[in-house]
Computed example of a mutant assay.
Amino acid sequence: MRIHHLNCGCMCPVGGALFDGFSRGLTAHLVCHCLLIETNQELVLIDTGFGLRDVQTPYSRLSPFFVHFNNIQFERKYTAVEQIKQLGFSPQDIRHIILTHLDFDHAGGLEDFPEATVHVMQSEMAAARARRGFIASRRYRPHQWDEVKQWQYYGAGGEPWFGFEAVRDLDKLPPEILLIPLVGHTPGHAGVAINTAEGWLLHAGDAYFYRQEMDPANPRCTPGLRAYQWMMDVDRPARLLNQQRLRRLSLDHRNDVQLFCSHDAVELEAFVDH
C-alpha cells in the first residue's frame, strides 16, 4: 500500500500560538489531516475534510458559529477532490471512505465521491442523526452526507489491537486497515490503524488535538485547544482515558506504531516531509 498525507482544510482561529503553539501572528494554523491509501485494487480515503460544496456555499452547509469560531479558510485547493486530482486520480477512483467521525470538518467532502462506500461506527451515525443539544446540532451537518448512497456501519468488538478494541475485516477493505474505537470526543469516534511495510500508522482523529498531549513524560496542551476539546467532548472521562492509553501506546510501542491527530500542522508537516 502507498499512503499519501493530505491537508483537506485550513482553520485559523484567533489566538495564534495559544492554539497551535507556533504561530507568531494573531491567528493560528490548524489543518485537516486526511489520508489517501492506494491498495492493490482501489483507493481509500480516511476522512474528507471540507468539500467543494462547503467552499462554494459555506453558510448553507455549515454552522455560522463554527465558521467564525474556527475562522475556516474556504479555498478549493484544500478540498480532497482537488488534491486527489493533482495526484493524477479521479474522484470516481475513490471506492471507500473511512471516517473517524461525522463532524463537519471531517465529513464535508463525502458527496464529492459519489461512488464511494462510507464506513463509520454505528454509534456515531446514531448521534449524528439525533443531533441533540447546541453543539451536536452544529457539529453534525446532514447536508454534507444526505446524498451518500452506500453506508457500512460497525460496532465495537473483535480481536484487540495493542490492548485497544478493534473492528477488523471492514467490508471489502484490506485486512491491514482497522477501526479503533476511541470514544469521548463524540459517541462513535474512532481511530484508523493501517499496517504498512514500515509498521503501524494510527490516525487518531480528534482523540487529541496537540502533539505534546502525547508526550508521556510531560503531556500538555495549548489553552485554546484544551478549551476547544472541553467544548466539544461528549464524555470527558472517556476522552481523557483514551488520551492516557494513547500516550502509553506511543511509549511502549514507539518502534511499532506512529500516531497522529487530525489538526496538528506540525505533525502533518513531519509526515509530508518524510
Rank of each mutant, 00 (worst) to 15 (best):
G15M: 13
G199F: 05
D273A: 14
N71C: 11
A197H: 10
A190D: 02
A80C: 06
M125W: 12
F89Y: 15
F66L: 02
S123G: 01
R24D: 08
P237M: 07
P175W: 00
A207Q: 05
V81R: 06
E124A: 01
P174L: 00
A17V: 08
D47W: 03
H4D: 14
P175N: 12
D235H: 09
T196E: 10
L268G: 02
F162V: 02
S23W: 06
W230F: 12
D171K: 11
F69C: 02
L26E: 12
R141P: 00
F89M: 02
R24K: 13
C34I: 01
N255A: 05
A107I: 06
D146Y: 10
Q144F: 01
R95T: 14
Y78H: 15
R132W: 00
Q229W: 04
Q41V: 07
T48S: 14
K149N: 03
A193D: 10
P114Y: 05
L52N: 11
R129A: 06
G21A: 10
G109H: 10
G51L: 07
H106G: 09
F134G: 00
V67G: 02
P114F: 04
L99M: 07
H119E: 03
G158H: 13
Q144I: 00
I97D: 02
V31N: 09
C12R: 15
Y228Q: 10
F69R: 14
A130L: 13
E75M: 09
G199I: 09
R24G: 04
C10Q: 13
A217E: 15
C261N: 15
F271I: 03
Y228L: 15
R211P: 01
P13Q: 11
N255H: 11
E198M: 06
R139Y: 03
V67D: 02
F19S: 06
Q244H: 13
C8R: 04
C221A: 07
G188P: 04
V148R: 05
G15V: 14
H203G: 03
L110G: 11
M125N: 00
F113P: 02
T222M: 08
M231D: 02
R131W: 10
F134L: 05
C261F: 06
H4Y: 15
D105H: 13
E213V: 10
A28S: 15
P223E: 04
R245K: 14
R95D: 08
E147G: 12
I94V: 15
M125I: 12
S137C: 01
N70T: 01
Q41D: 14
Q152N: 10
D105N: 15
P91Q: 05
I46L: 09
V55S: 02
S23A: 09
G16F: 04
D47H: 07
D206F: 04
S250T: 03
D252G: 00
G16A: 04
